[in-house]
Computed example of a mutant assay.
Amino acid sequence: MIDCTLIDDNASYNDADTNRAQQARVSLISDDLRAQLRDRQLFRVADNAPASGLIAQLGRAQDMNACNGCELQVGRKLGVERVGVCWVQKVSNLIININLRVEDVATGKAVFQRSVDIRGNTDLSWQRGIKALVDRLGDDPDATR
């Protein structure tokens, strides 16, 4: 599970405090997503540390959610069967979209891709969005087998 990324359509209007808060929220939901996947036994979640250099290198050049297969390189480096990519699109402080895609590393095929829209820019609303995505993933036997 690669860390979630943030696409902020209002980034030019944000100050340093807002940016710090948003990055903290992205870290929070990345950790929460991994924990929920583990706790619900939907996946064994790999430690990304062995691929941290590759992830950093790829992330400097592009968003991991739209990098044309670079997430598969990360999956191969980690020796996993599936790789998860999460991104948050912040349209405004009221409208936020959280996305999750799970891909088969061998084929590159997306086995799960869903999105939830949340209202409100709080830790709790973002965490509820992640829970809703994990609930949908848990309901999809093809994605988790």
Rank of each mutant, 00 (worst) to 15 (best):
A49W: 12
N68L: 14
R145L: 09
A106I: 09
G79T: 10
C70E: 00
E81W: 10
C4A: 14
K131P: 02
K90I: 03
W126V: 07
L124F: 01
A49N: 13
C4V: 07
W87G: 02
R128S: 08
K77W: 04
V26K: 12
N121T: 05
L137S: 00
D139M: 15
N65C: 14
V80M: 06
R119K: 12
D8P: 11
P50K: 12
D3L: 13
D47N: 13
A132F: 00
V91T: 09
V85W: 01
D63K: 14
T122N: 08
L124A: 14
D117N: 15
R145Q: 09
A56T: 11
L37A: 03
Q73H: 06
L54T: 03
R76H: 06
I98W: 01
I98F: 01
K109I: 08
R40G: 07
E71R: 10
A143L: 05
R145V: 02
D9F: 06
N48R: 15
R82W: 04
R60V: 02
T18Q: 13
T107F: 09
I29R: 06
R20C: 01
C86D: 02
R145S: 07
E81T: 06
A132D: 04
I7H: 03
M64N: 02
T18H: 08
I2T: 05
D32F: 07
A51H: 08
D139I: 12
D139H: 09
D3K: 15
N68M: 13
R34I: 08
Q113R: 14
V111K: 14
V83S: 03
N99R: 09
L100V: 01
G75N: 03
S115L: 15
R20V: 05
A16E: 08
S125F: 01
D3E: 13
T144G: 04
T5V: 10
R38T: 12
A132V: 08
I96E: 04
W126S: 10
V74Q: 02
V134P: 01
Q41Y: 00
G53A: 11
Q36W: 00
R60G: 05
Q113D: 06
L37V: 07
V91C: 07
R60Q: 12
D9C: 09
I118Y: 00
G69L: 10
V105Y: 01
L133P: 05
Q127N: 07
C67G: 05
L72W: 04
A35Q: 14
Q89P: 02
S115K: 15
N97R: 15
